[in-house]
Simulated scan of single mutants.
Amino acid sequence: MKKHLLASAVVAALALIQAGPLATDAAAAEKATENAAEVARADWYHTLVDAAFVAQHAVLPKPEGVLIIDARPSTRKYDPGHIPTAINIPDTQFDKHIDRLPQDKNTLLIFYCDGVECMLSHKSAFKAEKLGYTQVRVYPAGYPDWLASGHIGAISVPYLKKLMDEGAPMTLIDSRPKERKYDKGHIPGAISLPDSQFDKLVDRLPADKASPLYFYCEGLSCKLSSDSAARAVKLGYTNVKVVPEGYPEWVRLYGAGEGAHAAAAPTAPSIGAGKESGSIAVASLETILKEAPGSVHLIDVRDPNEFATGSFPGAINEPVSKLEDRIDALPIDKPIVFFCGAGGRSGEAHDMAKLYKPALVTYFVNADIKWKSDGSYTITEK
């Protein structure tokens, strides 16, 4: 009871403080600040946020310029439940995983752990500040408050695999398009319920509203699973979680899923070279897109917000700004074609792959590409 009251006091005080100009008056804001100071422990980090603030950033596609960090232990806490898009850097291993923090010291870092009695997030926040990060925040009420505030939790792919191996009751839902994605490979045991057809196919969900539901799609650049999960909650399902890293992470960790072998990649047409070394000829690319898109991995290296406005069917998003850290996760079973909107970032991605992982077979599109709202596109070779 004491912990619950303390958490409620912190959340209420933070809500008033963060209202800023929307607070009823300056005296109310000042009083809220005094209340927060009374509630907060002396050894807490000095800049605190609430669930509403975190919710602005815990969205898919994962936004740039912000990183949510779960400071709790991995297997015992993070894997079974965490805030969507959060990465796990246990405070006890902070120094070992500094390389997982962004290079840009102005990146917004939001630390959290297991509630107001947990000091791990505060300790990590002070460490990050000492490293020179200028936008550090702590969500003191943490993951318990996230769930209590009505937000959906996430689980890791390894934890999903553990549940499956144990035979735990669940309904695993693939929210991606059926023919273009699910039929070509999905996590074993998953049912297909495309988000675009959710209302029409909702009878595929179990009748018991307490049944565990786990939604996934195409990774951190895909919002279909989170949208479907929110729909399920509105229908009254009470045990809903998302698997944000989705099918790409499953493939990386455990190999291609069901349907992948039946939908084996077609033989790739010969890849013609473009004018610049390492580039693919536009005519060759267009043939592949039309006749054998599954013969290569199409990787869009633009930022997630650009990717969300349109891309080639079947493409995955790996922003070039993050590619160096993700280089070992790139697929090796088929040639990779990097592309962007003008050829600059795709060429950089190709050069990076050759430098850090020369075994990869990669090409880049040196062209101006424009996508339209109807899914069509134009490509003008340079």
Rank of each mutant, 00 (worst) to 15 (best):
A28P: 00
A19P: 03
S226E: 11
V320K: 00
V251D: 00
D300I: 07
A40L: 09
A154L: 07
P293C: 00
I332T: 15
D114H: 06
S376T: 15
K372G: 04
K127L: 06
A283D: 13
S8V: 08
A315L: 05
A353V: 14
L298Q: 09
K290H: 10
G341K: 15
R326T: 01
V11A: 14
Y182A: 01
G274E: 10
G257Y: 02
G347V: 06
R76T: 15
L172S: 08
D50G: 11
K130F: 09
A292I: 05
R252W: 10
A86D: 00
E381N: 04
L360Y: 00
K3I: 14
W250G: 10
R72K: 06
H46I: 14
K370V: 13
K184V: 11
K370I: 05
I299D: 06
Q18I: 15
S221I: 08
A262C: 07
E306M: 10
R204L: 14
I187V: 14
A13L: 05
L220T: 02
S225C: 10
A86Q: 03
A210L: 05
K62P: 05
Q56L: 05
A315H: 10
P244L: 08
D145S: 04
L108A: 13
F338D: 11
R76C: 09
L253W: 09
